Computed example of a mutant assay.
Amino acid sequence: MPLNLVKLCVGCDSVEDLEEWISFRLDERRRVGDPVEYFHTTRMVPTRGAEIIEGGSLYWVVKGKVQCRQRVTEIRPFVDGQGIGRCHIMLDPQVLRTEWQPRRAFQGWRYLTPADAPSDLGHGRVGWAELPAELRQELAQLGLL
């Protein structure tokens, strides 16, 4: 059974912000002739990487709630120019929206079992993702989502 990661999406106020960032980064890589792939760089290498790349995802916490995920395709450890070990978590650029799940702030990333992961949006809530981010946020603060 695949294992997932959960991480704070720092600097993004909405899933749309994350999607725009991903698009910008891919366009930038295309423009300079680098391989067109998307990754998140982290200091720590997941010790359970084999379980993660067997179908796991990186779930993003946006504004205190897990709101979306990206499938993890590969984990690439490397040493940066200063001799510090780091890791590229290679991600499918497609962002899949999930049911919202509250999360307190934490540093780094955490493992997330499939049983604890929020479901992808659907099952009667398809139009919910189409609401403007501000409206979704306000409805969530009122406890209606």
Rank of each mutant, 00 (worst) to 15 (best):
A50V: 08
I22K: 07
L142C: 11
A133K: 02
S119K: 12
K65P: 10
W21T: 14
Q70F: 01
V72G: 00
R25C: 09
V32G: 05
E138V: 00
Y111V: 05
L96F: 08
A115L: 12
I84V: 14
G143F: 01
R86T: 09
L145F: 03
P2Y: 02
K63E: 10
W109I: 08
L131F: 03
S14V: 06
G11N: 01
Q67G: 01
S14R: 01
A140E: 08
A105I: 10
G127E: 12
G11H: 06
G33L: 15
E74Q: 14
Q141W: 01
D27G: 15
C12S: 12
V66D: 03
A129I: 00
A50W: 09
V72W: 04
Q141I: 03
G49P: 04
G108I: 04
Q70W: 15
R43K: 13
T73W: 06
C87K: 15
M90R: 09
P77G: 05
E16K: 10
F24N: 12
W100V: 06
G143I: 00
E51P: 12
V10L: 12
G127Q: 12
R25A: 03
L135D: 04
C68M: 08
V45C: 02
P114G: 13
T47D: 04
C12N: 15
G122Y: 03
W100G: 11
W60G: 05
I75G: 14
I52T: 06
L91H: 12
F24R: 11
Q107S: 14
H88I: 02
A115P: 07
E19W: 07
A105E: 07
S57V: 14
D34W: 08
P93T: 03
W60A: 06
F78V: 08
L144E: 03
D13T: 13
V45W: 05
E19A: 13
E138R: 00
R136N: 02
A129C: 07
P132Q: 02
P114C: 15
G83V: 01
T73I: 05
G85F: 00
T98D: 11
L91T: 13
C87V: 12
V45H: 12
I52C: 07
V36S: 08
G122W: 03
Q101Y: 05
E99N: 09
C12V: 15
Q70K: 00
K65V: 11
Y59F: 09
G11I: 04
V10S: 14
R71V: 13
L142F: 11
D80F: 13
Q101L: 01
P102V: 04
